[in-house]
């Protein structure tokens, strides 16, 4: 199945400058599988949203879902 992925500006360094992409994942794939396909190291991921809802990385995806990856919150 195909899903839409978008990433924040910081992550574009891992995706050849691409902010939005459509990728193919296996049926019943979890969010983590889709994130791995973007090339973003998992340790960089703070959380993801699917269809604008914050979800865990083991959240199961469906055809046409929109996943967005966010970086970890930084600070002192």
């Amino acid at each position: 199945m195909r899903i839409q992925i978008s990433v924040t500006s910081w992550f574009k360094r891992f995706t050849d400058g691409i902010a939005e992409m459509e990728i193919e994942v296996s049926d019943g794939a979890a969010a983590v599988e889709a994130v791995l396909k973007t090339g973003i190291p998992l340790k960089e991921i703070g959380f993801v949203t699917v269809n604008d809802m914050k979800v865990d990385m083991d959240h199961l995806l469906h055809e046409g879902d929109r996943l967005r990856a966010y970086p970890t919150i930084i600070g002192g």
Binding site: S9, W10, G46, T49, I73
Partner: peptide
């Protein structure tokens, strides 16, 4: 890079 202001986007998205 963009510095700590990159926090705005994830914090806003996660409530």
């Amino acid at each position: 890079d963009a510095g700590t202001p990159i926090n705005i986007e994830p914090l806003n998205a996660a409530g």
